[in-house]
């Protein structure tokens, strides 16, 4: 008894614990590389904190039920769901909740077979590949097709539910998709909702955020905007948003690709000698030539 009293209770420095696991690096990287997404970053930080605390509890011998790590990422296209999932896999790996930390990204096609008896082996194959890492199911609601009662998606769903329950140490499942359709999917599959611990909603980017994203993308490709082009692009983003098939950062990337095309064409046609300056600078006309400024995509789209 005397020994137990004289022994000071062990203390754990959580910050140092997180640092030792390299989690802070990943979180900082997330902050640096991803523009905006404040609520998402907050949720990821909270989750990381929870995992660090759980680890500390475990090391002190306290009851540490591993938290339910399955997640759902909802949000419009191009809001960074896949990118964040990759980082999440990294965080889970560094904290030891995931042995390998790789990410297997699949859609309905990879899970559901084409004839009777094809689905189960296919789904199990994918699950085996994802073991020790994260299984990212994009547009998960396509698994469930209520209009066709013989749809094989149901079989894949049942196998997934079973694995999410029984193989929680081996695999983390992240379901992703548009917000409203995911909500409907969860309503009709309550099993998923109850097995998912963390729901993260990805907001749309603001216009200024998209502009910053564009500049970062250009910087990575060794391009830059001329000042007038930058202003034109800000206008472009505002206009593009109101047109159909707007996909946030993905639309920005596609727009930049087309602008590079126009730049290349312009330089080539000019027949002049070019320098670094010409090769890296997007000018206003490269931006303004987009059909977004002339009323946008045809209505048929």
């Amino acid at each position: 008894m005397a020994e137990a009293v004289s022994d000071p209770p062990p203390r754990i420095d959580l910050r140092r614990e997180a640092e030792a696991a390299g989690v802070l690096d990943v979180l900082d990287q997330l902050d640096r590389e991803l523009i905006g997404l404040a609520p998402v970053k907050r949720r990821i930080r909270e989750t990381a904190a929870l995992l660090v605390v759980e680890r500390a509890r475990q090391s002190l011998g306290l009851q540490a039920e591993p938290p339910t790590l399955h997640m759902s990422f909802t949000g419009n296209p191009g809001t960074g769901k896949t990118t964040v999932a990759l980082r999440m896999a990294e965080i889970l790996h560094r904290l030891g909740y995931c042995r390998r930390g790789h990410l297997i990204s699949v859609t309905r096609d990879d899970l559901v077979g084409q004839y009777i008896g094809h689905t189960a082996p296919k789904t199990k194959d994918v699950i085996k590949k994802a073991m020790g890492g994260v299984l990212f199911i994009d547009e998960a609601y396509y698994l469930y097709r209520p209009e066709n009662e013989r749809d094989y998606g149901q079989e894949a769903i049942e196998i997934l539910l079973q694995v999410m329950e029984n193989a929680r140490d081996d695999l983390v499942v992240i379901l992703a998709g548009y917000g409203d359709r995911m909500a409907r999917f969860f309503e009709s599959n309550p099993g998923f909702r109850s097995r998912i611990g963390l729901h993260v909603d990805f907001p749309d980017y603001g216009d200024d955020e998209l502009l910053r994203i564009a500049e970062i993308m250009l910087d990575r490709m060794s391009f830059r905007f001329a000042p007038a082009a930058r202003e034109a692009f800000a206008e472009y983003v505002a206009l593009r948003r109101s047109q159909p098939h707007f996909a946030n950062a993905r639309s920005v990337r596609n727009a930049l690709d087309r602008m590079r095309l126009r730049l290349a064409h312009r330089l080539y046609e000019s027949g002049l000698e070019v320098g670094t300056e010409d090769l890296t600078t997007l000018v206003e006309t490269d931006v303004r030539a987009s059909r977004v400024f002339s009323g946008g995509l045809p209505a048929a789209n």
């Binding site: 790789h102 699950i127 085996k128 590949k129 073991m131 020790g132 890492g133 193989a167 081996d170």
Partner: peptide, 14 residues
């Protein structure tokens, strides 16, 4: 044969 696996858990299961 179990191609493209990263972790032994899948093999152990089989």
């Amino acid at each position: 044969p179990l191609f493209d696996l990263k972790d032994a858990a899948g093999v152990m299961q089989e």
